[in-house]
């Protein structure tokens, strides 16, 4: 379950933002993507997750091994916490949600509608969704937004457990989670102006 990214260039709105990104994520590894706002961290993660095509380069990962979590968690406000988790567990072919509920301290909230949760509680629910996917490689975009210190600690524990059980994680975050993580500073990969900076579809017109 190794994620290999080779010479990857990613584009946003038809313009390349990052070029030549390469890294390898082995089991039990965590890799934190760092860089200033707007440099293309989200675009990079979405591309690695397969949600948008790579402009250049390759992303190699075993099939059905990636789980992606971002700002919107695919939660339905009219479903309860348990129903939301059960739904995603079923979609990913899993049954048990207890572990996910316990890991993010959601057992008291099980039957509350997701719409009535606070922002931080919702975020915890969104992260709990990761556990029910049973996917080994996590791709997390700003996972700690609107979490309080205690919840961040819960999250750090969950990631730690995931890593020690052979999983891996690719994170874009500004908070130090106290993980044994490598740092990938994407600053040097910022795309430079030039013919190659225009993504595939408009290049032909230059």
């Amino acid at each position: 379950m190794v994620l290999r990214v080779k010479n990857l260039s990613v584009a946003r709105g038809g313009v390349a933002v990052l070029e030549g990104v390469s890294f390898t994520l082995a089991p039990s590894d965590a890799l934190v993507v760092k860089g200033p706002n707007g440099i293309g961290k989200t675009t990079l993660l979405r591309t690695v997750a397969g949600l948008q095509p790579a402009f250049k380069g390759t992303v190699e990962a075993p099939e059905d091994s990636l789980a992606y979590a971002a700002h919107s968690d695919g939660l339905k406000s009219m479903l309860s916490v348990a129903e939301n988790l059960e739904f995603w567990a079923h979609v990913f072919g899993q049954k048990d949600i207890t572990q996910a509920v316990d890991a993010f301290d959601l057992s008291d909230l099980r039957n509350r509608l997701a719409g009535s949760l606070s922002a931080g509680q919702k975020r915890r629910l969104g992260l709990a969704r990761l556990l029910v996917t049973a996917r080994p490689i996590w791709i997390l975009d700003e996972p700690t937004v609107s979490l309080d210190t205690a919840s961040v600690a819960l999250f750090a524990q969950a990631v730690q457990r995931h890593l020690s059980s052979g999983g891996s994680a690719l994170l874009a975050t500004h908070i130090d989670l106290g993980l044994q993580a490598n740092i990938l500073d994407v600053g040097p990969f910022k795309a430079v102006a030039g013919a190659t900076a225009i993504s595939g579809y408009d290049e032909a017109f230059l």
Partner: peptide
């Protein structure tokens, strides 16, 4: 249409520079 796309591409390149 081709000219419009070319303009768009050139503008995009200029923004990058």
């Amino acid at each position: 249409e081709i000219h419009k796309r070319r303009t768009r591409a050139l503008l995009a390149r200029e923004r990058m520079a």
